[in-house]
Amino acid sequence: MALDDNALKIKLREWKDKQRRDDLKYLGIGAASLLAFLLFWQMAVKTGLANERTLPAPSAIFETFLDKLTDPDPDGNTLGTNIFASLQVSLSGFFAALVIGIPLGLCMGWWTYADRFLRPIFELIRPVPPIAWIPLVVVWMGVGLKAKALIIFFTTFVPCVINSYTGIRLTNQTLINVSKTFGAKNFEIFHKVGIPSAMPMVFAGVRVALGSSWSTLVAAEMLAASAGLGYMIQYGRNVARADIVIVGMLTIGLVGAFLAAMLQFVEKRFLKWKTTR
C-alpha cells in the first residue's frame, strides 16, 4: 500500500510538472502573438507607413500612459481619477441591474402569472437601444452620476433578466418531482431547487452584463461629464490627441478584463459543484 502511494505521488508530481510546462508554453505563444502585433505596429509607424499624428506608436502610447498616471493634462484628471469615476458609474448601474433583474427573471421563470404580467412590458423595453434613453434620462435626472448609472442599468438589466428566466426554466423536472414527493411547497422548491439550478445561467448573464456595462460607458459619459474614461476619450478627440484616445481605450479594456477575472473568481467559489467536475 505504502509503495503504491509513493508511486502515485511520483506520478502526480510528474503530471503536475507537465501541466506547468504546458501552461508556460501556451503563455509563451500568447505573449509572442501580442509582441509580434506591437512590433508590426511600431514598425509601421516608424517607417512612415502610418501617420504618427493619427496612429501613435506603441512606445509613445506607453509614455502617455505613464504620464497620465500623475499628469492631469489635457482633460484635467489623472488616469486614476478617471478610472474611479468610470467604475463608480458602471458598477452602480451594474449592481442595480443585478439586484432588480435577477430576482425579476427568476420570478418570471417560475410563476406563470408573473411571466404573463411582466413579459409584455419587458419585451417592449428590451429592443430599445440604451443610448436612445439618453435624452429622457437627462430630462429626468440631469447629467449626474444617477443619470449615467441609469443608462448603464438599461443595458445590463436585459441579460440579467433573460438569463435568470431561461436558467430557472431549464430546471430538471425530475428534481422538482423529488421535492414534491418529499412534500415541499412550491416556494420551498423555488428556492431550494429552482434558484440553485439556475445559477450557472445567471452567472453567464452577469458576465454578459458586466461586459456590456463597461462597453456602454463611453456612451453614458457623452452626457456632460467632468471625469471618466469615456470623458477622457471624448476630450482626447476634441484636442486631436490620438494617444489619449488610445490610452483611454486600452484602460477600458484592461479594467474590463480585470473585472471579468474577478467575476470568474467569485463564480468558481459559488459554483464549486460545477467547476470541480
Binding site: 425530475t174 428534481l175 414527493t181
Partner: peptide, 14 residues
Amino acid sequence: NISFVFQEPSAFPW
C-alpha cells in the same frame, strides 16, 4: 412520508 426513487438520476448536483 412518501419517498420516490426516479428512473433518471435525481441527485441534486449542487
